[in-house]
Simulated scan of single mutants.
Amino acid sequence: MRIRTENQADYAQVHQVNFAAFGNREDEAKLVERIRETSYFVPELSIVAEEDGVIIGHILLSKADVVDGEQHYEVLALAPVAVDPNHQKQGVGKQLIHEALQRGKELGYAIVLLIGHPTYYPKFGFQPARSYGLELKQFEVSDDVFMVCELQENALKRIKGELIYPSAFFG
């Protein structure tokens, strides 16, 4: 298996992976397509897992904002991560998440936020975000699924406020 940056030639396969991974529904696949068309898209953070020339997994980190009064922080949001159902539970998602977090750190981002499974994402350093002074009001979610991962040491001591997802998330 090879982990690499997505390119335009991958778009149809990435769509199919997201469609299949989320129970044959288009929500996540369409989300990826909408994000690609915005200034919040970071091409280096759209990453695929490829096996024998076929895309079997995809992860996308895109820019979002944390707002605290007049303070604005550019952060990353993880959504979605998808693995073809025939390749799930084989470590593909794990490798994609590790690669995405490493690239986010290398690009200088301080934190990554997500809405996700409360027992899966802590393995990668994600913790409940509200306990760090971060809030989410655009979606109603419980504390245990709204999570943050620190990419830069002590970033969570200085970044506080409300996560604002870009309009692409509301297609």
Rank of each mutant, 00 (worst) to 15 (best):
M1A: 14
R2H: 11
R2G: 00
R2K: 14
T5L: 06
Q8S: 13
A9I: 08
A9H: 04
Y11R: 11
Y11L: 12
V14L: 11
H15L: 04
A20C: 08
A20V: 02
G23K: 06
E26C: 08
E26Q: 13
E28V: 04
K30M: 12
V32R: 05
E37F: 00
E37P: 01
T38V: 07
T38G: 06
S39W: 02
V42W: 01
V42Q: 00
P43H: 02
L45S: 08
A49L: 10
E50C: 03
I55W: 03
H58D: 05
H58S: 05
L60M: 13
L61C: 05
S62Y: 02
S62M: 06
K63D: 08
K63C: 08
D65F: 10
V67G: 09
V67M: 02
D68N: 15
G69Q: 04
E70D: 15
Y73K: 03
E74I: 13
V75M: 09
L76C: 06
A79C: 05
A82C: 08
A82V: 01
D84R: 07
Q88D: 13
K89W: 02
Q90H: 14
V92H: 08
K94G: 11
Q95P: 00
Q95G: 14
H98N: 13
H98D: 15
Q102P: 00
K105H: 14
K105A: 11
E106H: 09
E106F: 03
L107K: 12
L107G: 08
Y109S: 06
Y109W: 11
A110N: 12
I111D: 01
V112S: 07
L113Y: 02
L114C: 12
I115W: 03
H117Y: 09
H117N: 13
H117L: 04
Y120G: 07
Y120S: 05
P122S: 14
F124A: 08
G125H: 04
R130P: 00
L134D: 13
L134Q: 14
L134R: 08
L136E: 09
K137W: 10
Q138D: 10
S142E: 14
D144C: 05
D144N: 14
M147C: 06
V148A: 03
Q152M: 12
N154M: 11
A155R: 00
K157F: 07
R158N: 10
I159T: 01
K160N: 03
K160D: 01
G161I: 02
E162K: 01
L163C: 01
Y165I: 03
P166I: 13
